[in-house]
Design a protein around this nucleic acid. Structure first.
Lengths: 304, 304
DNA sequence: ATATCGCGTCAAGTAATTGGACGCGATATC
DNA sequence: GATATCGCGTCCAATTACTTGACGCGATAT
């Protein structure tokens, strides 16, 4: 199968993958499904099906009554692989209108409800300019939606990385106004106007570069059974989860899971996990921040 | 271009899309990139590039010095469309190891950090059986990881929908043990053994079917500026956001955003939005639950 | 100066795909 | 219970997509 996979043309491979996909998700497919999805003739579709049958004969059987190929109980995906999470994500993307149903291979989107509050989506042009700036070490002028939302402020930033947390996209950047590194909410950037080479070394962003191990344990106020379940869900070893994390991002992770709330304020169910080394994280973050500010000031001094 | 798009073969269209993609994300691409990604000859790749140039001549220019095609400033995506969020999601998927880098079109994954605590991923076979059960109205026996994580419990459920919230997947199901509808965490289902036709009508799951409008406003304890910014971020109209939501899912949405925490317990920054009609939601949910339980009991009485 | 690399292109050959035609079996229609 | 319909499979010649091989061109590296 591996050899077969290598010598098959890219297009044919995709079509076999499609067969695999539909068998997995719908349990059935038609010759015409294949023909319509890829814009090929029925003859070619028949040939493709025959080829799939040669590779994985036990996976499907034609049901004359239903006029469709159906998945057998022995079915094992031969092409789409073991990580099906990506397709689940497609469903989420369709529900959020990030992706069109036609751009997926789903015939019927499974009855999946996505529980989220939709936010404004990112402007492609902004994203494009921002990515360029990151890649080519540029300093850019951006129009940043002020807190009031009405007045538009111009900022000069030199972004060097992007981060994603809880549905929000952040831009890690040096700020000319403050001469330090901070996070900008990508969806609040409306326009990128000018760009020029940046003179700031992103290696000075110690809050970004330095990582710390977050030591996470189930909330001890929960019953032992519940704690064990949570340990299993997060695949904890020895009762704790050690998650390396950039210092500047640690707060987002903490916010996401209510790790930054003092114990006792929330019901334990709302705070299923807690952070053991919070103090250490706080101190490390503050120290790194200080280091960056001083290094940037020194660099500016040398330059001017 | 539309006509061109229709008459182009599926494979060619994908390759033009690839050119568009690379121009967007990397700002550049090679003939050999195209050839290697799709397993075609360099000649064919040249032909494809020529075709793309015919369709969108202003989008790219060959840079002899760099030996690469480069994006021009006038670049406007001609194939990949306006919703680029789907590709951002791919990056998240790669970072979370749900997807392989090779299965995307990214040459270099942009320096994106994904802030999340990875959870155990879903077993494809379980997902497959569960989807079948939903689609064909089956009752299935599942092995559900008990709270202790060690003892395995068998449950008989008839699932009828799937929900996704904050990285977790839930299965909305009727439960034989309790004769009511409840949620099962998909990642805690280890195995699906037997299946048979279900006799329970999912239309009786009123907590699922009935929707309620969640009325969400910025936390009034925040400064007016901050409130305005949050209103903008969530695209609120008249200062509030009305989000229709299935009753059974309303709690997940509330949990995600700390809407279910009494005011004053958390710092306002950790509770940027609040729910105005919490009492109404609670009552509606309880009423629907009661209705379901009674309807199910009646149905059982008629049956037995 | 010379080698190397990526590009473009011409020409001939091969593989993929189409269009047309036919038969087969299961369901729906009257 | 005859008849139409639909989706499938398959044979054929014709067409299109793609490959293999060969050559020249310009920019960079040695």
């Amino acid at each position: 199968m591996q050899q077969d996979g290598d010598r098959l043309r890219w297009g044919v491979l995709r079509r076999l993958e499609f067969i695999d996909f539909r068998l997995f998700w719908d349990g059935r497919f038609n010759r015409s499904d294949l023909a319509e999805t890829f814009g090929i003739s029925t003859q070619q579709a028949s040939a493709d099906i025959a080829q799939y049958e040669k590779i994985a004969p036990a996976n499907l059987a034609y049901d004359r009554a239903d006029k469709a190929y159906k998945r057998t109980v022995q079915f094992v995906p031969a092409f789409i692989g073991k990580t099906i999470e990506r397709y689940l994500l497609q469903i989420v993307a369709v529900e959020n209108r990030w992706m069109r149903h036609e751009d997926t291979w789903f015939e019927a989107i499974p009855p999946v409800e996505v529980v989220t509050l939709g936010r404004r989506s990112t402007d492609p042009t902004v994203l494009l300019r921002v990515l360029d700036a990151v890649r080519n070490r540029l300093e850019i002028d951006v129009e940043y939606a002020s807190l009031t939302g009405s007045i538009r402020q111009s900022r000069t930033i030199a972004p060097h990385a992007i981060a994603h947390s809880a549905g929000r996209w952040y831009l890690r950047s040096w700020s000319r106004e403050h001469n330090d590194f901070r996070d900008y909410n990508l969806s609040r950037i409306n326009e990128v106007s000018e760009w020029r080479r940046s003179t700031v070394d992103p290696a000075l962003d110690f809050e970004w570069i330095h990582k710390i191990n977050l030591v996470i344990v189930p909330n001890p106020e929960l019953s032992p059974e519940r704690q064990a379940a949570i340990a299993a869900e997060y695949a904890m070893e020895n009762g704790n989860l050690v998650r390396p994390c950039r210092l500047s991002l640690s707060f987002y992770l903490m916010t996401q899971h209510n790790l930054d709330v003092e114990p006792g304020k929330l019901k334990p169910e709302k705070q299923q996990i807690v952070l053991q080394n919070m103090e250490e994280v706080f101190q490390a973050k503050a120290a790194a921040r200080q280091m960056s500010i001083e290094a940037l000031a020194r660099a500016k001094g040398n330059q001017g």
